[in-house]
């Protein structure tokens, strides 16, 4: 269950590269390549520095002109997509 204190990280088999503001994530073991847009890249960058979900949403709120309810809903939905795609996993402890 994701809450404001949950911290995610990129999975070890997901190789991420920022190209021209967009991201490529390659999961070679399963033969998948995924392209992230600029927002997706920003979320992944914030997850990579270990920001809990709550802080991540706060950071994005300062960067994007969007109401807080929409922002939180969209970010949580996107993190779930990243989980489902096998790009990130919740850090334990």
């Amino acid at each position: 269950m994701t809450d404001a204190t949950t911290v995610f990280r990129t999975r070890s088999d997901a190789r991420y590269r920022n190209i021209g503001g967009e991201g490529i994530v390659v999961r070679q073991a399963v033969g998948e390549v995924l392209v992230l847009n600029e927002v997706g890249v920003r979320v992944l960058d914030l997850l990579a520095v270990g920001k809990p979900v709550g802080q991540l949403i706060g950071t994005l709120a300062a960067e994007y002109e969007v109401d807080s309810v929409t922002l939180e809903r969209d970010v949580l939905a996107y993190i779930q997509e990243l989980l489902d795609a096998g790009i990130v996993e919740a850090r334990s402890g």
Binding site: V35, V39, V66, V75, E81
Partner: peptide, 14 residues
């Protein structure tokens, strides 16, 4: 705010 988009492609290597 538009959510991040993920586009799947396959490394077919075929």
């Amino acid at each position: 705010m538009e959510g991040g988009a993920i586009v799947n492609d396959q490394l077919g290597g075929k």
